[in-house]
Design a protein around this nucleic acid. Structure first.
Length: 723
DNA sequence: CGAAAGGCTCTTTTT
DNA sequence: GAGCCTTTCG
């Protein structure tokens, strides 16, 4: 197979430019993934590069896996030797291997968002600061922002010094200390520590530089400064670095993504070859047109010319409903109609929303209607309390210094270790200059030697009992495989029994079993290795990742998660000021532009039909509000849209107008089909038209196929041509 | 110490 | 409307 054969000239240019830096600016649906995978395949198969010397970085595990499976088809076994993964996963691997050069114990745990907040609360407590006055969330985002720009606690105050910032500075310092005491790294540290490692240990850096002959970065518009720095370090020797991105799809600035990286790339690599991918293969002309109008309203942006050879298609539908319940009902009904008409499958449809909170009403409507659906990341499996609890036990076994986990489960199930005891333990530990786990061990030792115990006899007993259990787990972990260890923990900790006593215990137990199922994947590994691999896996995996390639049912998904996906039919709900754009972003021009990009991302997911739906009245934060239509709707010229509402009469009226518009067009384009025409269908082959008539804002064609019977198609979806 | 009840706040998107 | 925190009572 010729790797270049199925590419257009621009794509081919991007694939063949393998020497030196390359910047690929790729519009939505322009075959970006195809270019990336074919580029890697080209390097391996045509140029003969050893796959071990290629690194491909993605943003999500899902993207990584998708790439893996596509590459598997192109280069098969070589895939295994590639370095392919998210920034965070790749960095975690590097730190396990080489982190000790900068004093990182390879058993470190990775703290997620939740753990971070817990630790921040502990930091505030240690500094006697009031968490009400200084919200942990706010401090967290300040620290994350700082870390993303490689600003440590020492330099923090050079960048401004409001009272709040001074507080942040102090908390930041303490927080880092506690992380170190816990032998833990947060997400930002994973990246930052690698950059530090490379800076401080040139020999380590040159080892990696020598290995990676080619480096490729996807979703470059979403990288932050640390990630950019990291890439520059890695590419420092060979400079064969290829980045792919689309500034118009940058929707993660709140996570410190910095579009300036794209501008700086051209500055840092003045010899970079720039390739534009502007042909869209995904959407119909009308959809692409509408999307272009939306994005063009942004001021901070380079104009771009997207075009497509696809057919004109149907105008995006702008639909008004009364309430969010009606909105959901409308979506379900419309999907049912589309599916009922034959050519669309439920799995072709996606419903997208701005905030996760919006999904509930939708779910209810789907359930009421009996229509199956798949909610992406609605349940947040790894954020469930019971799941986190068990993971905390397992993390403690690998790394007992993990204070966040220790404090999480030391009294779950209840062991009579209450708040006061824990406060006292923390205080005493600090006095002894150790972390809580070591303090527990000290206690256990003194207990045996009969020394002064500092705590009441009863308290010492329960604390020592817990410590003994943990020690036992640790000892057993050296010989048991992961699943056996898992079972031991769930039983011996009393967690299983504890759940049995809860009202929703059964549901929670199910989740434990599901987690156990994940553990089974690691069962074959050697005892300690299995645990490490499992913990790393669950720390860096998110729920989006289990979205199957091919859906059988309707997909409910946030706009952010939808990036990179495509669906024949897309509904975007909540097209109101306050939702899209989100009210928190409305006052800040930069954020407003990001909201617009988000809207753009949503529209450009659609291949054939888009519905922009809004509710006149909606419940927000417990009370009912009336929202204006999204300002982004105003960016789409009237002639590009079809309007509708839930009231049937109104809807009919406006679709009639559309029909008239289409009528006017069909004078220019010859009438589509009439009975007796011989036609060809992609899947069913040749047949004869037996009926053709307009329905709503589409047309239905009925075709008789030889030996296959009569099929009905909606013209907008069927790929039917005259013979 | 723990369970239950009441009050508070804040709601974005995720590796 | 939910989750988190505080308060209160046993």
């Amino acid at each position: 197979m010729d790797i270049l054969a199925e590419l257009n000239p621009a794509q081919r240019e991007a694939v063949e430019a393998i020497n030196g830096p390359v910047l690929i600016l790729a519009g939505p649906g322009s075959g970006k993934t195809r270019v990336i995978t074919h580029r890697v395949a080209y390097l391996i198969r045509t140029v003969g590069v050893n796959p071990r010397r290629i690194m491909a970085v993605t943003f999500t595990n899902k993207a990584a896996r998708e790439m893996e499976s596509r590459l598997d088809k192109l280069v098969s076994a070589s895939v295994r030797d590639l370095t392919l993964g998210t920034f965070h996963a790749i960095c975690a691997r590097i730190l396990r291997r080489d982190g000790k050069a900068i004093g990182i114990d390879k058993r470190f745990v990775i703290y997620d968002d939740d753990d971070q907040i817990s630790l921040l609360k502990r930091s505030l407590q240690a500094l006697s600061l009031d968490p009400k006055q200084f919200a942990p969330r706010a401090i967290q985002s300040a620290i994350t922002a700082a870390k993303s720009q490689m600003i440590g606690p020492e330099e923090f105050l050079e960048h401004g010094r409001s009272y709040f910032e001074e507080v942040v500075q102090r908390v930041y310092e303490r927080y880092q200390q506690l992380l170190t005491n816990s032998n833990a790294l947060d997400f930002d540290d994973l990246l930052l520590k690698v950059v530090t490692l490379f800076r401080e240990k040139p020999d380590v850096l040159s080892k990696y530089q020598a290995r990676y002959l080619h480096i490729q970065v996807d979703e470059f518009q979403d990288t932050n400064l640390v990630q950019y720095e990291l890439m520059k370090q890695l590419a420092g020797k060979y400079r064969n670095i290829c980045v792919v991105g689309d500034p118009d799809q940058s929707i993660y600035s709140w996570r410190s993504a910095d579009i300036r990286n794209i501008l700086n790339f051209e500055k840092d690599f003045p010899d970079a070859k720039v390739v534009l991918l502007e042909q869209n293969y995904r959407s119909t002309k009308l959809i692409l047109d509408a999307a272009s109008h939306v994005i063009s309203a942004n001021q901070q942006r380079k104009p771009k010319d997207l075009w497509t050879e696809n057919e004109k298609g149907l105008p995006p539908a702008v639909v008004e409903t009364y309430s969010e319940e009606d909105e959901a009902q409308y979506v379900v009904n419309e999907i049912d109609n589309l599916v009922g008409s034959g050519e669309v499958k439920a799995g072709d449809c996606a419903v997208m929303f701005r905030t996760n909170a919006q999904s509930r009403v939708l779910e209810e409507a789907f359930i009421r209607y009996g229509m199956p659906y798949k909610l992406v990341a609605g349940t947040r499996f790894y954020e469930r309390r019971e799941v986190k609890d068990i993971i905390a036990y397992l993390r403690l076994i690998q790394n007992p210094d993990d204070t966040v986990s220790l404090m999480r489960i030391i009294n779950v199930p209840q062991r009579g270790i209450g708040e006061r005891t824990l406060d006292e333990l923390t205080r005493w530990a600090r006095e002894q200059g150790v972390n809580e786990y070591r303090a527990l061990k000290l206690l256990a030792v003194s207990r045996e030697s009969g020394d002064d115990l500092h705590f009441s006899a009863r308290t010492v007993k329960v604390l020592a009992g817990f410590a003994a259990m943990l020690e036992d787990f640790i000892a057993r972990s050296r010989e048991l495989n992961l699943v056996a260890l898992f079972d031991l923990v769930v039983e011996r900790s009393g967690y299983k029994q504890y759940l049995a006593g809860l009202v929703d215990g059964e549901d929670r137990w199910e989740n434990i079993l599901e987690l156990r199922g994940v553990a089974q994947d690691y069962q074959e590994l050697k005892p300690v290795e299995g645990l490490t691999a499992f913990l790393e896996g669950v720390a860096l995996v998110s729920d989006v990742d289990d979205l199957p390639e091919k859906q059988e049912t309707v997909t409910l998904i946030t706009l952010h998660q939808a990036k990179g996906l495509e669906f024949p039919v897309v509904f975007i709900v909540g097209m109101e000021d306050g939702i899209i754009p989100h009210y928190k972003s409305i006052d800040d021009p930069a954020q407003l532009e990001e909201e617009r990009r988000l809207c753009y991302v949503g529209i450009t997911r659609a291949k054939q039909k888009v519905y922009l739906v809004r509710a006149f009245r909606r419940h927000l934060m417990g009370s009912s509000t009336v929202n204006r239509p999204s300002r982004f709707l105003e960016d789409i010229p009237e002639h590009l849209i079809a309007r509708g509402g839930v009231r049937e009469s109104e809807f009919e009226l406006s679709t009639n107008e559309v029909a008239e518009k289409e009528e006017a067009e069909s004078v220019k384009n010859p009438p589509d089909f009439k009975a007796g025409d011989h036609v060809r269908h992609d899947q069913f082959g040749e047949g004869i038209v037996v009926n053709y008539h307009k329905v709503k804002n589409d047309a239905e064609v009925v075709v008789a196929f030889d030996g296959l019977g009569v099929k009905r198609f909606l013209l907008s979806f069927a790929k039917i041509e005259k013979v």
